[in-house]
């Protein structure tokens, strides 16, 4: 199984680099994963989206895909693509420590 080494902790991830367990997630892990995705600094805008990703995952067992994420967070699609370029739902899910969303829209 693939793992990440973050601040001395060994964290298991799946083959696409998504955390296996949300319990391993904290803000430092998020910052590490964000850097991997090309996001240097996590702003308030990012954190608000990350919070919605985790909340939806805890409530439904799956991360929201793009349209659900936009509706649930109140962040317009265009802005989501600016915050998490090249695939906002999947990138936000990775940084939030939840599995890749499976929805089609």
């Amino acid at each position: 199984m693939a793992t990440l080494e973050i601040n001395g902790k060994t964290i298991p991830v799946d083959e696409d680099g998504y955390l296996e367990n949300l319990e391993d997630w904290d803000k430092e892990v998020a910052a590490f994963l964000a850097k991997q995705e090309g996001i240097d600094t996590l702003t308030d805008g990012h954190w608000a989206v990350i919070e919605v990703m985790q909340k939806t995952f805890k409530e439904t067992g799956t991360g929201p895909s793009l349209r659900k994420l936009s509706k649930a967070s109140g962040v317009p699609t265009k802005e989501l693509y600016q915050l998490f370029p090249k695939g906002p739902a999947k990138k936000a899910a990775k940084v939030a420590g939840i599995p890749k969303p499976t929805g089609c829209v």
């Binding site: 349209r67 317009p76 699609t77 265009k78 693509y81 089609c104 829209v105």
Partner: peptide, 18 residues
């Protein structure tokens, strides 16, 4: 019910996504 938008909104989403 499946979160698939009407045509106009769908085009907007696609355009906003680049």
């Amino acid at each position: 019910s499946m979160d698939i938008p009407p045509v106009g909104e769908f085009l907007e989403m696609i355009h906003d996504g680049g």
